[in-house]
């Protein structure tokens, strides 16, 4: 399916799980518990990861944290320059984000533009107490002053490379790999 060469396996299934467990602990540590927490997964890579974090938080702290999904297509900054429009996915935030400590969850942070769009989108839903960011992989190359609070794996990459996260919820073999374009 790809005409890219070289592949390096960065994280396998157990490594992904350990990273997520650590991230869940870090979220609870930084927020001093799960009070007023809300997790929002960014479509599409962050949605499953957000649910996993919620499950881990429940296992650690015994608290059920609300989980939502956010599609940022309508807030992208590149709609004018793309050859075709992306099809928006569902946004489902069924809890009130007012006064909540929101943790945005995504699989990979790269230029930071997706997160910028997510911040603008969240603000249209209400005024949260604070917003933090959890990602599975930080691959560098930020084009905006945006950083993640919780990182599963720091992965220096070259701009030509492509990072792909495959999750079991999508019916794939669970792994994080690097492709060379």
């Amino acid at each position: 399916m790809t005409n890219s060469k070289q592949k390096a396996l960065i994280l396998d299934k157990p490594s992904i799980d350990r990273a997520m467990t650590r991230v869940a602990h870090e979220i609870l540590e930084k927020n001093k518990g799960a009070k007023d927490l809300g997790l929002i997964g960014i479509q599409r890579g962050g949605v499953h990861l957000a649910k996993r974090l919620a499950e881990k938080i429940k296992a650690i702290e015994g608290v059920e944290v609300p989980v939502g999904s956010l599609d940022i297509t309508m807030y992208r900054d590149d709609l004018d320059t793309r050859k075709s429009q992306p099809v928006p996915q569902a946004t489902d935030i069924s809890f009130d984000i007012k006064e909540k400590a929101i943790v945005l969850v995504d699989d990979v942070i790269f230029t930071g533009r997706t997160i910028r769009a997510a911040l603008n989108s969240i603000m249209d839903y209400g005024r949260p107490k604070r917003i933090q960011l959890a990602v599975l992989v930080d691959r560098g190359h930020r084009e905006l002053p945006i950083r993640a609070d919780f990182v599963g794996k720091n992965l220096p990459t070259s701009a030509r490379e492509k990072v792909e996260v495959s999750l079991a919820e999508d019916g794939l073999e669970e792994k994080v790999v690097i492709f060379e374009e």
């Binding site: 429009q85 099809v87 928006p88």
Partner: peptide
């Protein structure tokens, strides 16, 4: 089908308190 699928997500915008997106 593309138009109908896309419309489904835009329907949500009209249900929100702030019925606006910057698209």
């Amino acid at each position: 089908k593309l138009i109908l699928d896309t419309a489904a997500t835009f329907k949500d915008v009209s249900e929100r308190d702030i019925k606006k997106v910057p698209t």
